[in-house]
């Protein structure tokens, strides 16, 4: 698949030759340097922007063939962009995840209510339920956005850099939560990240985006094939295969 932007007749390729697949219950990460196209890839997968060529297939169906409400019940997205109205309460925001399932005016059914409560429970947000979003910290807001995606009850959850701006503890907390969501509820969870060492420790599959070639596989396979090593210029950062982490050259 190739991704990028078209404006008029001009086409800007961001990345091409990307190929990977995830199955239910897997946590996947997309890693790569800044500006390589991780977010573009994620947005293309969620059909927020059209792909340039190739195909995105969900449950044996090409993504273009799905109606927008069908897609909304299959794929949910957590983006980096801030939400428009910070005046929403936490529970209102999470309820909006039920949008694809509610009637014309958005009445919540008993099933909707229970899915919302379930999402609140999984992310331990009971105490914040009635808080306004502008009162929350970055980490709390991130959890609320994940809860909203969870309430959308989709087979696939895409997250764009869910751990930026968080300290190490909260990074690990969120990632372990994503791992638990993927494994326990049998969903595909795919996120973009810069924390490659955390991704290696927690993910089932990793997509490495690199200018020359994009590789995909389980973390240990990728370490063996030395795929992480040419991710950064060798004179500044080297990859240590034993510890699965990067080191700064002195």
């Amino acid at each position: 698949m190739a991704i990028g932007y078209t404006s008029g007749k001009k086409q800007t390729d961001v990345a091409n030759h990307i190929s990977f697949g995830l199955t239910k219950g897997e946590l996947g990460a997309i890693v790569g340097i800044n500006g390589i196209g991780k977010s573009t890839l994620l947005r293309t997968l969620g059909r927020l922007q059209p792909k340039l060529s190739g195909s995105v297939i969900i449950n044996n169906k090409p993504i273009e063939s799905l109606r927008s409400d069908e897609l909304a019940s299959l794929v949910s997205i957590v983006l980096t962009e801030p939400i428009a109205s910070k005046n929403l309460t936490v529970s209102q925001l999470i309820s909006l995840g039920r949008h694809p399932y509610t009637n014309w005016i958005g009445t919540l059914s008993a099933e909707d209510q229970s899915k919302i409560l379930n999402a609140i429970e999984i992310l331990e947000l009971e105490s914040l339920k009635n808080s306004k979003c502008y009162e929350l910290s970055d980490g709390q807001l991130q959890k609320v956005m994940i809860a909203r995606a969870l309430a959308q009850d989709t087979e696939i959850i895409l997250l764009d850099e869910p751990t930026t701006h968080l300290d190490l503890y909260h990074k690990v907390h969120i990632l372990k939560l994503l791992q638990r969501i993927a494994h326990d509820t049998n969903k595909v969870v795919l996120y973009t990240t810069h924390e490659i060492d955390l991704a290696i420790q927690l993910c089932d599959k990793i997509v490495i985006m690199n200018k020359t070639n994009n590789t995909f596989g389980a973390p240990c396979e990728l370490i063996e094939s030395k795929s992480f090593e040419d991710l950064f210029p060798k004179d500044t950062i080297t990859f240590n295969p034993e510890s699965g982490s990067f080191k700064i050259n002195k």
Binding site: G46, H99, P100, I105, G106, Q152
Partner: peptide, 19 residues
């Protein structure tokens, strides 16, 4: 009304909710 509520999250989120 329903779409207006979804728009409170921003256009991209509304799009991902099937609006």
């Amino acid at each position: 009304i329903k779409s207006l509520n979804a728009l409170l999250l921003g256009e991209n989120y509304a799009l991902s909710l099937g609006v």
